[in-house]
Amino acid sequence: MKASSQRRRRFAHLGLLLGPASIFLLVFFICPLAIMIVYSLLAPGLYGGVEWEFYPHNYGRILGFADPEFEVFDPVYLAIFLRSVRIALITVLAALLVCYPAAFQVSRLPARWKNFALFLITLPFFASLIVRLFIWVLILKKTGFANMVLQQLGLISEPLELIYTDGAIVLGMVYVFIPFMFLPVYASVEKLDWSLVRASQDLGANAFQTFRRVILPLTLPGIVGGSTIVFIPAPGNFVVPAVLGGAKVIMLGNLIEQQFLAARNWPFGAALAMLVMATVLVILFLYVRYEARRGDDAPVIR
């Protein structure tokens, strides 16, 4: 009886702790998500809104089974989806190439300089994202700083089209998401056991073999975690493409915004949002499977 009473008391305390967070998630996440799922399966209204009839062809406009009576399959939406995924993957790779060696450099600094370097990494969060992106507009436009420097050095004769391109969007995304990549990678590098690296070198391994067989496997959790955190918001981001891509480069986030606000096609916008959500859930599922497999493969210390 005493054990049962303690168990009930423990569950009551747990309910009190998790109750507010659970209610918050239910009201502000689960319910809106359920509304979006329902709307994505309804027919679009003639002048906006929805018609309350089952209409799965919103997904067909993207995946290839559009309603033959009213519309035809347009591959532009699938192309926008694939472009968004491609830009997101390039962003992940570019951010990793920047952050991985930087994490090693910061981890070897003295304590006071290490803390200062970490502060510099998080410093962009103290400024408005829009302000930071418009600074890149001033740098990349035809009369901007980058073209001016290249012309002064004689490397180009005419200004380059640096802005409103895929490259400008990747640059802006990497700039925005670098802290999200750096911090997980740095946490993994900081825990690296350098005695294993020295042991590998003592056993005759060269630098590449040591990196491939020792350093990379030990820092892989940080790489996977940082890549996941960066990839999840990247395909649906609409601020960076809107500022640095203009009307020339459209990603899923911009397309969803247009469908809800300009075209007033809420069901199709909801279907696009659900497609982004499905992509994110697949990535999260793979990450959870990786973490579970890593936990099963970890050695047991007795």
Rank of each mutant, 00 (worst) to 15 (best):
Q6T: 15
R8Q: 08
L18T: 13
S22P: 00
V27W: 08
P32D: 04
I35Y: 10
L41N: 03
L42D: 00
Y47G: 07
Y55M: 05
P56Y: 04
H57Y: 14
N58C: 13
G60S: 09
P68E: 01
V72K: 09
F81R: 04
R83A: 10
V85W: 01
A94I: 10
L97F: 01
V98C: 12
A102T: 11
A103N: 02
R108A: 15
R108T: 12
R112L: 12
W113E: 01
K114E: 03
N115Q: 10
L118W: 02
F119Q: 01
I121C: 02
L123C: 06
P124V: 09
F125K: 05
I130Q: 07
R132T: 07
W136G: 09
I139F: 11
G144S: 05
M148R: 13
M148N: 09
L150G: 06
Q151F: 00
L153H: 02
L155T: 01
S157E: 12
P159K: 07
I163V: 14
A168E: 02
V174R: 00
V174D: 02
V176F: 11
V176R: 14
F180H: 12
F180M: 15
L183K: 00
S188C: 01
D193C: 08
W194M: 15
V197L: 00
Q201Y: 04
Q201M: 14
F208S: 05
R213G: 07
P217Y: 09
G225M: 08
G225H: 00
T228G: 07
V240F: 03
A242K: 14
V243F: 01
G245D: 06
L255M: 15
Q258W: 10
P267F: 02
A270D: 00
M274I: 11
L281N: 03
F285S: 15
F285A: 15
L286V: 14
R289C: 14
R302E: 03
